[in-house]
Design a protein around this nucleic acid. Structure first.
Lengths: 340, 340
DNA sequence: TTTTTTATCTAAAACGATTTTATTCTATCT
DNA sequence: AGATAGAATAAAATCGTTTTAGATAAAAAA
């Protein structure tokens, strides 16, 4: 492996000069610079980033910690992060976890140990442990997609409160009055946001909020099917369902069909995430979409600004993208209206 | 930031001792070891991996270079890699590219500069440039999913020749005789493998191979729709189509339907990749599946073996997973047989 | 008691760059 | 010619570890 020292010896100059010549700084004559570069080229010199990082105290590396949870929408966000990193010559280390604090904590520590210049975190929940762990981090941190209440960090994500509002409003304008919400877990910030959007909208339309219309669970836990059965066995079952994710929505659709319900004839279903491929589902899914790729890119931009002028003690900036309603065929006017 | 030196000062020992105490090697008494560890804990010491790497010449990092090309199946492979890395306490740096040599070359150089311990590469093609670039790499290399002819490296991937055979054989047993192949590009190794499996199977069943039944292109290039039109305007259009990917298959299905063709009534379509979500398509897609997650994991395993006992000059090992036919509803018996 | 062994620890040299300070050499100006 | 400024380079310090060789003291063997 070629080092600066070897180049120096071959060129008959000191290592310091070689360093300056290669990194193109002042202080070295054009003639020697050219000569040194030629020798480096011949020797196939590849700079040692590790050694450089040790002295400059910058690794040009950023870390990403995020739960996977089987949601394909994540990958667009990761690709956005990836893409924006590369275009600024930063390297990305991605750590996917399963939403458990211990795992998450280990990943963060690993990344700190690697001396990343900054960290993008999608927190898996809002435990006190996690909050205090994040506050201890010394490098710049940007939160992506999920906020943690009480932590004032830069943020890039979507406005889930708005998403909840839009979805609910849409169903209401279709004539629905009994609307259920299928969330994943009340521990998740976005879940609570959507729910709040849902509640507030009901209130705005003077529709009473019923806690029995709220269901928690996901496909993995298999709670979904039970919940649908519970829902259908209600005296006046809801005619619309809003889901926390497209994945949950698909589970809901499948279970409804297997129980002989027609969508959107009997029940309307709204998903969340706009997973492109689900437009190909035999009942194309109405859903709320966010610009995931952009969210990822923006997270990196916020982070790089902090990294590159570290002194800025600007207040935290929240970049919040508006969600968009994508109407397809899993939603329709409420039955009673059609019959009129 | 706490360093070993500071711990040493506080504990009244030398830095060397601290290093040994923390990494749990011999040569330090249980009492001092405990004392040092306690101090490190109190000070919130996080080891500096960069500095360690510089002296040990190991980064516990592996690099992954792979084209993205809009294929979601990739992510399962990446997750497999990711997963296996973490379980061995290695860190993964993922570089997605768009299948261009220059980009690929830059990414490889970046990773080498970062002193990765090993590299997993899914080559984007088989150019001479790429071949010689890879041969210059000094750290262990494993190829994933795509081989390069003439390069004898460890490999983890699927048997696409077999995949081509299975798909073709299946259509033949359904009575199809005129079968088209929709590939992406003849530059891609897997594409050629599937095609070869297709050809050999035709031959085995004494069905003449017709070059006009082979189409190249993908959804992005928009060549797909033209190709379908071309295909349908043939005097005796094929009754079966085998596609290089599920994504292409979906494009084919959509175009066929928009031209009034019934699938599988008029034409049968076989995809490739088994993208889980496409089982939800209104015509559930028959496809060839590979264990993507496993392929990723295995690639890491092969690599780690090379990394951890570097002296082994064992010949390259090829781990080739058998593809599996997943029959759903986009394929059926050929029309003429049904009519009989 | 003396010698040998063993356990524990220190000191110093790496690792491969960057960066700061010192030095040499030229060229210019009086 | 001598002083001096400026450019080009050399030399040395540094980054935070690991690792090696050597020193010291206590324990074991002679």
């Amino acid at each position: 492996m070629t080092t600066i020292k070897e180049i120096a010896k071959k060129a008959g100059v000191s290592p310091g000069t070689v360093s300056k010549a290669l990194s193109g700084r002042k202080d070295v004559s054009p003639i020697t610079k050219r000569r040194i570069r030629k020798i480096a080229e011949e020797l196939g010199y590849i700079p040692n980033f590790i050694a450089r990082s040790l002295v400059t105290n910058k690794t040009h590396t950023i870390g990403l910690v995020t739960p996977y949870l089987g949601n394909p929408a994540l990958f667009d966000r990761v690709r956005g992060v990836q893409n924006r990193c590369i275009s600024s010559h930063y390297i990305l280390i991605t750590c996917l976890n399963e939403g458990e604090f211990k795992e998450e904590a280990m990943q963060i520590e690993t990344l700190l140990s690697r001396k990343v210049d900054g960290l993008i975190i999608t927190p898996s929940g809002e435990s006190e442990e996690l909050r205090s762990l994040i506050m201890k981090i010394e490098c710049p941190v940007v939160l992506m997609s999920e906020m943690i209440e009480g932590l004032d960090y830069d943020f890039s994500g979507e406005d889930d409160y708005e998403g909840g509002k839009i979805a609910t409003e849409y169903l209401i304008t279709l004539g629905h009055r009994d609307i259920a919400y299928f969330g994943n877990s009340p521990d998740i910030y976005s879940d609570r946001c959507i729910l709040k959007g849902y509640k507030d909208t009901l209130e705005r339309y003077a529709i009473p909020y019923r806690s029995k219309h709220i269901f928690w669970g996901n496909t993995e836990k298999n709670t979904l099917e039970d919940n649908i059965e519970k829902l259908l066995s209600m005296p006046e079952p809801p005619t619309g369902i809003i889901c926390w994710s497209d994945i949950i929505a698909i589970g809901v659709l499948n279970k409804l069909e297997s129980m002989g319900k027609k969508v959107p004839g009997d029940i309307s279903v709204v998903g969340y995430d706009n997973i492109e491929m689900l437009s190909l589902f035999h009942i194309p899914l109405t859903t709320i979409g966010q610009p995931n790729f952009l969210i990822g890119q923006k997270a990196v931009e916020l982070l790089l600004e902090r990294i590159e002028n570290r002194e800025t003690k600007e207040p935290a900036r929240k970049v919040i993208f508006k969600p968009e309603l994508i109407v397809r065929n899993s939603t329709g006017p409420v039955k009673s209206m059609v019959e009129k």
